[in-house]
Design a protein around this nucleic acid. Structure first.
Lengths: 206, 206, 206, 206
DNA sequence: CATGAATGAGGCTTCATTCAT
DNA sequence: AATGAATGAAGCCTCATTCAT
């Protein structure tokens, strides 16, 4: 009866996913070898295959996990009884908090999922599908904003790019160590800019 | 007297780079094999190595080429005697034009350079270095805008992310086939939004 | 329950070294391919790399092994309480015995180590270093002979060449199949000649 | 009418051989590439094939050249009306002179010919054949010595190994930079030792 | 004779995955 | 569920040689 027996199969799976996210985000999908992941969780390479069917499978599960984390965060915000302006602020803050807390999560999302299409294309027909849950919440946020008269009515992709583009860009810059301060410091300014880009013209003056 | 004999060594190098950009951007760096590139230019795999020292070398030269193309475009705009608002419009338009004309160029930049850090990290210390020329022009654009009283004075990274984030996001979405219309159709709207995010408050009302 | 499972990792390493010595000595380092070695030990080519980091690594380990075998043999003789004349006889005999028993060992030493300097030069600064243990024993043999008044005092390299030169030459000729008889038959005559070349003049007459 | 036209085809062949001997002896047969040889003689890689049918062909011609040089030297000595003792002295001296003058020649012989059997085995059935001319002269030297009562009657291979073994060993040590002095300094001592090993017993006392 | 771009075969090595224990 | 030796399929790259000019 070994110590590791105390962990359930699900918990071990989760350990593997977390380790994989860290390694993939740092070294890339291809440069990360299965034994590297195994070593990071303290098990043998072969044993990984008792939890996942392949290295790709690990990556796909990791993506789903990342998408969930972000979606959950955004959903909680969406359910709050506050203005869209406030929601955007909360979301940008939450996003950057996540970036500080578990930077590899966002980096993994940016670097591995968005970039290594060849890995995920069989699973996800297009760039949204694997991240569908998350994208849906973004849509809800934007739609509500329009409904309630705060945001300019606009094509979804445009609004999406104005919101997620800068955030992705910032997460990327953080990973490249080109920022002088912790990402959190930029949050409120960015939120303001995003809001200015999206809000109805009559609301811009304060 | 074969046709290819008429091409200079530099031209052949260029052919290889163009072919590589297309393949890398479609299949990723790792899934593209050297013989694939060779076949695309109509030469043998071994011959590639008479032009480049390795597959990585091809990718690095390709990055430099992409950065140059974008930088040149932006430099031309920067030198025009027009308002910053107009410059942003021109740049967004030019960017999307490039995306339509040679979509793989931007995609390559996004997918290979930004994502496969492990390939370029030896060459470029951070995410700007390899693209330095381009980043410099963006800086010029933004600085001039502030000097001339059009743009709000702001941290460079924030402004950079508000400009390039949405553009990158759009190029990415185009590659994922989630857009209903050609990217060009979104250009003026995006340019407007970016300008709204960055401009001085007193200029927002028209 | 396969037979090879009964072997420890060290034993498998040894199997590979022995197989490599045979192949290298027969075909040369370059003409021997890694799969050839693998086939000779009954494993796959890739598996060789679980034991050695490269083909060169195999060769280097093999050299160390050969040097050890010869050094051990000579050390045992050096520790015997007999005259230098007798020691030379014993050494020449032992050398030729080794040549008969495992001809590839000496051949490998002669052909691969002495000849393919480019392989070993990073490891061993000069021709003695990798075989240092062995050379040291030769030195001991000769020094003792001088101390005890049997051998003429002489430059080490000269004495070394008079001893090892003919032995190496003979091992080589054996490999070339130019000898009429087994090498053992020549041993006592060679030992006598070597002794005559090295001994003090007053001892030459019997 | 270019300058190089002044050299005959034979002269160019010779240039190639000399360059090849230097490179082969330093880097080994396999690590020396055809373009390396070409560059050393100042011609293009392809042009080598106007003089030799293959890289192996170059090596074989080089061996024949080396064997000739040594054989010629020894033949001249053999034809001199002097004692065998003197001849051995002259030969050892001449050998070491050659080692000083063109060290690569002997090194090539030792390292490439003796070691890379797989290259020459098709051409030369055994280790003597490619060097036949030279071996023949050695035989003449030794036979004459016996005939004239200077040398002990002995098996040819034994005598050969006592003569050429130490010389080869010395050339090798020189190449490894383990000698303190120029090889020439060791010549007379070595010659004496060799003579002592081979001469009739009644001649040993002076 | 000379050039050097081009070819193509083949080697070394890596690594995801399997499987006997 | 765990191990890690073993497999085998590829991929990158080298280099002798050819050939069009």
């Amino acid at each position: 009866m070994m110590i590791r027996e105390l962990k359930s199969k699900e918990e071990r799976k989760f350990d593997i996913i977390v380790a994989a996210i860290k390694l993939f985000s740092r070294d890339g999908f291809y440069a990360t070898r299965v034994p590297d992941i195994a070593k990071a969780v303290g098990m043998s390479a072969g044993n990984i295959y008792n939890y996942f069917s392949s290295k790709e499978d690990v990556a796909k599960c990791a993506i789903r996990y990342c998408s969930n984390v972000l979606a959950k965060r955004l959903r909680a915000i969406n359910e709050m009884p506050v203005s869209t302006k406030k929601k955007i602020e909360l979301f940008v803050n939450g996003y950057f908090e996540e970036v500080e807390k578990f930077p590899e999560l966002i980096e993994f999302f940016l670097r591995i999922y968005l970039a290594n299409r060849e890995i995920f294309s069989k699973e996800c027909d297009n760039g949204y599908e694997c991240a569908a849950e998350f994208v849906e919440e973004v849509q809800k946020l934007l739609d509500r904003g329009v409904e309630e008269g705060e945001l300019e009515e606009e094509n979804f992709h445009i609004a999406f790019s104005m919101l997620m583009g800068p955030l992705g860009c910032f997460a990327f810059m953080r990973g490249e160590n080109v920022l002088e301060k912790p990402v959190g410091c930029y949050a409120s300014e960015i939120a303001k800019n995003i809001y200015l880009a999206l809000c109805k013209s009559e609301r811009r003056d304060h």
